[in-house]
Simulated assay, not measured.
Amino acid sequence: MFLRQLTYLIALDRYRHFSRAAESCGVSQPALSAGVRQLENELGITIIQRNRRFYGLTEEGKRVLLWARQTLAALDGLKQEAAFAQDIAGGSLSIGVMPPAIQIVPLLLETFRSVVPALHVEVKVYSSAEILRLLREHHLQLGIMYLDQLPEEGGFDAQILYPEQHVLAAAASVPLPAGRYCSWADIAALPLCLLSRNMRSRQLVDAGFREADVTPTVMLETDALELLHAELLGGRLASILPVAALPERIGPSGLQIRRINGCASPDVGLVRMTQPNSSMLLTRLWDVAKTFNVADIYTV
């Protein structure tokens, strides 16, 4: 079966005349008739009611016509996607991401490259405030940050990626409270390594301690997730981190975790500047990002 045979069938239904249908397809009438007969032979059914003239489609032919329309519409969509990918094959994208969300970037890029395989991406780590500034100055095209940090006056579009959940994490050698949950008072009794105070994630943690009226025992503060991960996996200190910022090794051979009672869960999302004439690339990727959902992955 050839696609042109389906094209012949659609043309016949439209023009209701063999000669005019053949002319619209750019072939001779005998070629069109032969193509339709070949389609009938391949399917083993009669599609066209005919003598020397076109009298319409049989009931089986009407059902084949529906499939023909769907098939050619799908092919047209495929051609558009291919043309789009070819047009922007050399496209580049710059993304700013806050440190606690850095580990979701490979998942997001995998989604982007499913439609733009040759996409070139530059990813840099910034605070939420820096991401907003660099978006305004057009040094970044997309940002991943806390959505409660967006300015009230607007100017930005946003999509929620996941609600951030903080958890207590420690190696199996560190004694943690029994059960799935713990309190801020339980955590304050442990030696901790935390993110730096200028980071929004740490500010949420500090707010939890203040509201519980307890003072934590902080042994290390850093803006480097790699250092926190090393301390955690080494069994030296416990930490409070977003689920998205945990090292991969969780369980018997890695970390034990506890949910925290009364901990804020701000939304983390994808942000861009509001622009009336966004590029074709950015518009496409923004639409693709709407299918990107990691809420289940980063919830325990």
Rank of each mutant, 00 (worst) to 15 (best):
F18P: 10
T46K: 14
A169D: 07
Q275P: 06
T299M: 02
N261P: 00
T291I: 04
A212M: 03
D157R: 15
I297N: 08
D213Q: 12
A244P: 02
M219H: 12
I47F: 12
E152A: 15
Q165F: 05
L255S: 02
E60M: 13
F2N: 15
S279K: 04
R16P: 00
A264L: 11
V294D: 09
S24V: 02
I102W: 07
Q70C: 06
T71K: 13
N41Y: 00
P99Y: 02
P252E: 12
I131M: 02
Y162Q: 07
K290E: 09
I95S: 04
G235A: 03
M145K: 04
A34N: 13
E42Y: 06
A295Y: 04
N293G: 00
L140E: 07
V271H: 03
R197M: 01
V300P: 14
L134G: 01
G254V: 11
A171C: 11
L107G: 10
L220G: 07
I104R: 05
R16S: 13
Q165A: 08
G26I: 03
H120M: 05
L232V: 03
A289W: 13
Q80S: 12
L72C: 11
I104W: 06
P151W: 10
D87E: 15
W67E: 15
A244S: 15
L204H: 14
V271A: 03
V300H: 07
G56C: 08
